[in-house]
Design a protein around this nucleic acid. Structure first.
Length: 577
RNA sequence: GCGCCCGUAGCUCAAUGGAUAGAGCAACGGCCUUCUAAGCCGUUGGUUGCAGGUUCGAUUCCUGCCGGGCGUGCCA
């Protein structure tokens, strides 16, 4: 709808330029939705923006523009206001057409025509060394909603989860599982302080004991050594090395068991949350395929790699990073960053127009080096959009809760979902702008109270469903939406509801553009408010036939847009509550 | 120290550089003989952290302070 108005204004500007009333080369006119009733439905500040270039006062430019607008079957009238705004008042017919479109297109209303723009969306990608916690939940809800939103906006979206199944953190998990396994087998060992201590480690150990029997038992004193004078991290490395030596080929059994168990857990958790991926991309597979070496070779060839202190460094400072970064350690092992370079190179080569990474805000310092690597490899770093999701700070009983995977002291996403429900959790998460720090009040979220805005929106949907159930019970006919006369809709609440419906596509398009699914959530709340106000002010079934038909068409349209909007957020639209 | 994010009503948060900064919760007062009261209507609530600057116009952009979060690994 906004675009339609924009086209009319652009045409008028073109006419004025051709007539010599305005200079050429003016900025594109911008159309915005009026916030206030008295300012019409849309407005443009074009005259204010063009006044200087035109060398005339804004109001005279605006008057010219208004005169050049000509007639339209959408616009009722144009008013010149304030310092030079042009306000457009639309005809009822414009909104009635929206209602008809919604009812005709149903579940697809709002879906934009495909635009042949391929997006690779990577999100969550949490290390598989523990269950997802509520912090990951925010990334999951945001990333998934963004994916759905982009699809609705016409983008071709591929969703990916990058699995960090190589590296030290996974070795630490393996060691932690092994210790618990030994406990299961009757050995009295303590879990190392800097190992993973959560209860899930014990669960993995028990299933490991079931399949491996005594096969992985080794003398603890050979492995859990504690050489004096070494830092905890170094001791951990020594122990991992000892464990690998002691287990030999069986280490893979241990490592693989932990990995498989965690991945399955994460995958199920996300699936239950309504989050699905097209591909789970394994870092180990990437390394084994030689892609990492190939990427390093290309950097070496372009002179972006150098050796220092026995390690290989990527010359990140050449591309705006604050320091150079190690890609191959002194011991010859590539770093996580090296894998990530290869992964992002591979993403580029798969032919996506845009790469979107959703990261936790703690990784923000990582952005320049990845973009730098892409630049070094001859790809435009602007193709990579890194969207940072700020931490959710948890409060339990008014006290800030700790979030540590290591200690196992955290609230899992699964726990949250069980207590709050998927719908409330998703809506709650996505109600905040991603880069906004978020206070997550667990007691409030878990309280199942009416404070949670998701019920407000869902209730609006359920209410309309209820009206249609009553309609059937009273033996009244469902109106034919193709012939219904919407001119009967004249009440202020009806007018307001139609206008709210007309905003949907504009909101969707804009939200996708700026990667902000929260705009959908706020829109839905606003739409629901109009529906509730309407519901309370008028009866639908009690009205005379033609008016009843028109009203039913309107609320049916509202129900449809509520359902479609909720679908974008991955939230259900219940028929009764 | 340096870098990134944030600072808006008592609380949690919105607001493509636009006109009188908005919701929810909390507080207060009304509305169920009628399609679901998980709802509606109304009232109260603000120096947009502070100080400058750019602009016809700044919550929004720039600079400097203040406060909070995160980062600043040959961890991932």
């Amino acid at each position: 709808m906004k675009n339609t108005i924009a086209d009319l204004v652009k045409h008028a500007v073109k006419t004025l330029v051709a007539a010599g009333r305005l200079p050429a080369g003016l900025p594109e006119p911008e159309i915005s939705r009026s916030r206030q009733e008295g300012h019409g439905d849309f407005s443009t500040n074009f005259a204010l923006a063009a006044a200087k270039a035109a060398g005339r006062p804004p109001r005279t430019v605006a008057a010219d523009l208004a005169a050049a607008m000509g007639g339209s079957d959408l616009i009722d009238r144009v008013e010149l206001a304030g310092p030079g705004f042009l306000n457009f008042f639309l005809k009822p017919r414009a909104f009635q057409q929206i209602v008809r479109d919604i009812l005709a297109q149903g579940n697809d209303y709002g879906r934009q025509t495909p635009r042949s723009h391929k997006v690779l969306l990577e999100f969550v990608s949490a290390n598989p060394n523990g269950p997802l916690h509520v912090g990951h939940g925010r990334g999951a809800a945001y990333g998934d909603s963004l994916g759905r939103l982009l699809s609705w906006a016409g983008y071709e979206v591929v969703r990916e989860y990058y699995v960090n199944d190589a590296g030290r953190q996974m070795d630490i998990l393996a060691l932690s599982v092994w210790v618990r396994y030994m406990q299961v087998r009757g050995h009295a060992l303590d879990v190392p302080e800097n190992g993973y201590r959560g209860a899930y480690v014990g669960a993995i150990a028990r299933t490991l004991a079931d399949v491996a029997g005594a096969g992985l038992e080794r003398a603890p004193q050979d492995i859990l050594v504690a050489p004096p004078g070494l830092e905890a991290d170094v001791i951990m490395d020594v122990r991992i090395e000892r464990l690998k030596e002691a287990l030999g080929a069986h280490y893979e059994t241990l490592h693989g068991h932990g990995l498989k168990a965690m991945l399955a857990d994460i995958r199920d958790d996300l699936a239950d949350f309504g989050v699905h991926y097209d591909r789970w991309y394994s870092e180990r597979t990437l390394m084994q395929s030689g892609a990492v070496e190939r990427a390093m070779e290309r950097l070496r060839a372009s002179g972006d790699l150098y050796e220092d202190q026995g390690a290989q460094w990527f010359r990140a400072t050449r591309y705006g990073d604050e320091k150079d970064r190690v890609v191959v350690r002194e011991n010859g092992v590539t770093t996580y960053f090296a894998s990530d370079i290869a992964y992002h190179l591979e993403k580029c080569e798969r032919g996506f127009d845009t790469l979107i990474d959703v990261w936790g805000a703690d990784h923000h310092g990582y952005v320049p080096r990845v973009k730098g690597a892409l630049a070094a490899l001859g790809h435009d770093p602007a193709r990579l959009e890194v969207l940072l999701v700020q931490f959710a700070i948890l409060y339990r009983a008014g006290v800030r809760a700790q979030m540590s995977t290591r200690s196992g002291d955290f609230v899992t996403l699964r726990e949250l979902r069980a207590e709050v429900g998927n719908d409330a959790a998703r809506f709650f998460y996505v109600l905040r702008k991603s880069e906004q720090h978020m206070d997550f009040d667990l007691d409030l979220a878990k309280s199942q109270s009416n404070d949670n805005p998701v019920y407000y929106v869902q209730y609006a949907h359920a209410r309309v469903c209820s009206v249609f159930r009553q309609l059937a019970e009273r033996g009244l006919p469902v109106p034919d939406y193709t012939t219904v006369d919407l001119e009967w809709l004249t009440a202020p609440e009806e007018w307001a509801l139609q206008k709210a419906l007309a905003r949907f596509v504009d909101v969707l398009t804009e939200a996708a553009e700026v990667r902000e699914p929260h705009q959908i959530a706020y829109y839905l709340r606003d739409l629901a408010a109009h529906l509730h106000a309407y519901y309370n002010a008028h009866t639908f079934l009690g009205a005379e036939a033609p008016l009843r038909a028109a009203r039913l068409a309107l609320i049916a349209a509202a129900r449809q847009v509520l359902a479609n909007g909720l679908a974008i957020l991955g939230v259900s639209a219940p028929e009764s509550m």
